[in-house]
Design a binder for these strands. Structure first.
Length: 605
DNA sequence: AAAAAAT
């Protein structure tokens, strides 16, 4: 029995007993329709990080601990060839490793390896709005300069032909030492948007000076703490892993060693990986704080800090941990590092909060000035709670591709997946109460089409890049409109089309008005019942029109203001902006904005 | 009221 079968068994214990329980709809990705069966893939990655990136003796670094014996133990290792290094002010790429190349980049024919799924030709039309002082000119092609030559070869291997709009701006912005706040959908090349410029700079500039021994702690690692140069934080384990996998492509044959740490997985494995080198670290906040507290990791050499899904990272649930990492650790202050924030949505209040972590940043807004892509057909059905299962069953046969169903609770995720399995539909589920193994298995069987239906909670709402998701179903609508925007962004990624169907009833009156705004902005049909529920809602409340203004969900630079000209931007910018207290104390500006905003927000419950 | 993230 394969691991995937095991995975399904946890949901449906009798699936093995009935032979008829074979999946009745099996998804075959378009590029595999007439292809010969794929050879069995190994369950675990073929190469450990140590294999991918062996230390070269006599390289730019020397670790006192265990280094030479480590290399001596494996003198025949063919993958040592993949090591690059930085010597005498120059980046010396390692030798080619065709097997590793195949694993990282796939073949030309296998389109599933273009997992970023970007149709570059559709990008030229997308409007980009950049604001801030002295915004650097965008680059139009992947060329050197400004991009480091070896990074260019990796970008070519990954078959990225030209920069996406985010990348056009982020590359020169980071090269000119500026901070960045970027609003862009997943699938818009966001990950490359920060990996390319950061890796380019790191490749050029080389490692930071090796730390002298710092403390003598009770564990041996405290004598050689890990000092990453770049840190990427993201809100879910799967997302952090996805970014890590991307980073392995672009660090191929380079001196930079990427690592990943997140909860639910073995700590020892993660720390061992770091001790074969760690220059670029991807992390979820909890595990990182843990490793900092235990003395494994120091952030004192951080030059680049990235917050992916930044609005989520700065909301109530995460903000204390982020402050703990950014302000409460040995990380260099805002003026001694570069900070980059990315998200598809950026509510104004989050933008204001974010300026604590940014200095004189460029604000970038990519895509429609509205919020959701026109590639996605958004459909809203009026469905009472007790009719939802039947309506879902009617809906499922209408799509051929992967179907992602969002629910509000973990319990509902389990019970809905169980319900679907009992209907002989190959479904799986992902939520935070499942083990990390189950989560990764679920995601894998969904990606491969083995289980073309996945029921998910908020854990899968953001950032995950799953090719061939053709249909997102909001079985339960979220209570925040930004969550809606992120969820439907799992389909219709640039260049493709997708459908988003939402089940709406009176229980969702809280987001009725903002849903109308989103639908209108994306030129979608607005059913009458939403309008009438929205009206009921605003009558019931003490004198407010429902929802937030159409612009507030974050495609505009809040510094521009829309209440009385742009004095906050033009006048106050040069003087007060670098000071993180400048805005918080500015009662005129801050107070006026937040009361309007907080009002409509608070009213939705 | 719920989800996510450390054990």
């Amino acid at each position: 029995m394969s691991a995937n079968d095991l995975n399904k068994l946890t949901l449906s214990e009798n699936s093995e007993k009935t032979p008829a329980a074979a999946p009745s709809r099996r998804y075959v990705p378009p590029h595999r329709v007439n292809a010969p069966p794929r050879p069995a893939q190994p369950q675990t990655p073929q190469y450990s990080n140590a294999d991918r990136y062996p230390r070269s003796n006599g390289g730019n670094r020397s670790f006192g601990y265990g280094r030479s014996s480590y290399n001596n133990r494996r003198p025949q290792d063919p993958h040592r060839a993949a090591a690059g290094r930085y010597a005498n002010g120059e980046h010396v790429p390692g030798y080619e490793n065709k097997a590793l190349e195949l694993e990282l980049f796939g073949t030309q024919e296998d389109t599933s390896f273009q997992s970023t799924g970007i149709n570059f030709d559709n990008y030229d039309e997308i409007p980009v709005d950049a604001s801030g002082t002295d915004v650097p000119e965008p680059v139009l092609t992947f060329t050197s300069p400004p991009i480091e030559p070896h990074l260019l070869t990796n970008i070519k291997l990954a078959r990225y032909t030209k920069p996406t709009p985010v990348q056009k701006y982020s590359i020169p912005i980071i090269a000119s030492k500026r901070d960045l706040m970027a609003c862009a959908q997943t699938g818009s090349g966001k990950t490359g948007g920060f990996l390319f410029p950061i890796l380019s700079e790191m490749f050029f500039q080389g490692p930071v000076a090796e730390q002298p021994t710092e403390t003598t702690g009770r564990n041996r690692f405290q004598n050689h703490k890990i000092h990453p140069q770049a840190l990427v934080l993201a809100p879910t384990r799967e997302l952090v892993n996805q970014i890590y996998e991307e980073s392995q492509k672009f660090t191929y044959r380079s001196w930079v060693r990427p690592c990943v740490v997140y909860g639910g997985a073995d700590v020892r494995q993660q720390t061992q990986q770091m001790h074969t080198g760690c220059d670029l670290l991807m992390a979820t906040p909890g595990r990182l704080v843990d490793l900092i507290d235990r003395g494994y990791i120091s952030l004192s050499k951080i030059k680049y800090l990235v917050l992916d899904e930044a609005d989520r990272m700065l909301d109530m649930g995460f903000e204390p941990q982020i402050r703990r990492i950014v302000e409460g650790s040995d990380m260099p202050g805002v003026d001694h590092r570069q900070t980059l924030m990315f998200s598809a949505t950026f509510p104004r209040e989050i933008q204001m909060l974010a300026s604590d972590f940014l200095s004189d940043y460029v604000f970038l807004s990519v895509g429609r000035v509205g919020s959701t892509s026109e590639n996605i057909t958004q459909q809203v059905l009026y469905v009472e709670d007790d009719q939802k299962p039947a309506t879902l069953i009617d809906l499922l046969p209408t799509t051929k591709g992967l179907i992602l169903i969002f629910v509000e609770t973990k319990r509902m995720a389990d019970s809905l997946a169980y319900f679907l399995l009992n209907k002989n539909l190959a479904a799986t589920s992902i939520h935070g109460d499942r083990s990390q193994f189950e989560r990764e298995e679920a995601l894998k069987s969904f990606r491969t089409g083995e289980a073309p239906i996945m029921v998910a909670t908020a854990v899968a709402a953001r950032g995950l890049d799953i090719p061939n998701v053709t249909h997102v179903i909001n079985y339960d609508l979220p209570s925040e409109i930004d969550d809606y925007v992120h969820r439907i962004g799992r389909t219709g990624r640039a260049g493709n089309t997708g459908i988003a169907t939402s089940f709406f009833n009176r229980g969702n009156r809280g987001i009725a008005q903002s849903l109308i705004n989103i639908l209108k902005e994306a030129n979608q049909e607005v059913p009458d019942f939403i309008e009438s529920v929205a009206r009921e809602h605003s009558f019931g409340r003490s004198g407010g029109r429902g929802g937030r203004g159409g612009r507030s969900n974050g495609t505009r630079d809040w510094r521009r203001g829309n209440n009385g000209g742009n004095n906050g931007f033009g006048g106050g910018f040069g003087g007060g902006f670098g000071d993180s207290n400048g805005y918080g104390n500015n009662s005129g500006f801050g107070g006026g904005q937040s009361s309007g905003y907080g009002n409509s927000y608070g009213g939705s419950w």
